[in-house]
Design a protein around this nucleic acid. Structure first.
Lengths: 232, 232
DNA sequence: TGTCGTCTGTGACATAACTCACACCAGCAG
DNA sequence: CTGCTGGTGTGAGTTATGTCACAGACGACA
């Protein structure tokens, strides 16, 4: 069930925020307990309300964390790439999953059983510390997102999203800041709390103003300053 | 600077989520290090971006935690009453204050210096656990609030707010569920991410439907079920 | 008891953003 | 190559909610 090379698992854990500080020896025992799981494109990893058995560490792929409304709406809370982890909240308080998660691209994760993780927290001070810091970080991110929903109009939120995506994963191709979105406009819309159509219009409006250029599923940021200004 | 009776301070700490499990002996040393501070109505306790020196435990009064926009808008993230604490996020990750806080009513707090709190976390496993659980709880509350902003219309959010306030602090007065708001419509509006005027209209619309009755600054919940249904 | 400032009530008006509806395009499966 | 399926582009019409502009009420304090 877990044919991932142990060396690779250890290296992976080491690159995460949560386990970064641990000695290799400890990581090896953790890696031994971990189970690898794979998910196809679009496959659901867990759903809001499920009992939480594990913390998941991303090995490869893209995952969206989201909540759904009674009427089928979807709000994306975060989209994660390696190295990253998901399922922290349930581990923190022992409750059921607070949101759903699905693979946007084929992805593989390492699942750490709740019990081994709790044991680790007990024995390794640095894991508990990292956990506290990580949750502080999550809290900050979320309050920012909430504030944006109230204070910014949809165009502002789209601009902000593009800017932060460009920061994280933008690439300069002969002088031009290039961003492969990696998600559909539907996902984009769910990230900013808008409708797909409106987001589409806004994308083209930004392009019409010369702030960005659109192509395939990638965005060229022409006027980075203007984009950032529009996000304020 | 700290003329609060030690016995009272200990009792207070014991009633909080964070320190509830501690031995009286430990609490006494904590109480010794705590400093009492008072704030008048409307006074700002700390502001977003301030360096964080302390965790605050509410002794008396009402506090709102909020963020402000560049254009002066205000979004209330939480309104707290004793027993409760504020300033957790900065303590978790050592960063600056992630939001502002102000007294809605005259309030007094116990300030625990960051250093003593961190020491406590180190020595007392139960505090670290409580901290992790508390942050999980905060995270859940915030993701719920974010989802509501996206999924519910303003009337839904107002209904939900009233319902949860009634749960927490509603009183039955000869059969009728009575809720003293304790905040202005302005604050109400900032809690649901709407304008004061719209919230006012919605309050009266709910009253017109016979779901609630308005008086002074208090709300009588006539049709609790209808209120809850409207909040879905 | 009067006065001032804050809070509340209400209307007219503007507009951002949603829904519905549909056409087009591209990539993949057969 | 051909036909789907899912993603993208675009318009018309509707609506929720914000803004502006007041008036009246209340309560705190002089």
């Amino acid at each position: 069930m877990s044919p991932i090379p142990q060396e690779r698992a250890v290296a992976l854990l080491q690159s995460t925020e949560l386990f970064g500080g641990l000695h290799e020896e400890v990581l090896r025992t953790v890696a031994t307990d971990a189970i690898e799981r794979r998910f196809g494109k679009g496959e659901v990893i867990f759903q809001e309300g499920d009992p939480a058995e594990a913390l998941l560490v991303l090995v490869e792929g893209i995952v969206k964390v989201y909540v759904v409304s009674a009427r089928g709406g979807e709000m994306v809370l975060a989209t994660l790439r390696p190295p990253g982890s998901l399922g922290e909240v349930s581990l923190l308080d022992g409750g059921p999953r607070s949101a759903s998660a699905a693979a946007i691209e084929p992805t593989t994760v390492l699942a750490l059983a709740r019990s081994t993780f709790l044991g680790l927290i007990d024995r390794e001070r640095s894991v508990a510390d990292a956990m506290l810091r990580a949750s502080g970080h999550l809290l900050r991110r979320l309050t920012g997102q909430t504030a944006d929903l109230v204070f910014l109009d949809l165009e502002g939120r789209v601009a902000k999203l593009l800017a932060s995506m460009a920061d994280e994963r933008g690439v300069r191709v002969d002088g031009e800041l290039t961003l492969d979105l990696g998600v559909t406009q539907n996902d984009l819309a769910a990230m900013v709390g808008g409708s797909r159509q409106s987001v589409n219009q806004i994308l083209h409006a930004l392009a019409a103003k010369g702030i960005i250029r659109l192509e395939h599923r990638t965005v060229f940021v022409v006027e980075e300053d203007a984009l950032r200004r529009r996000a304020t």
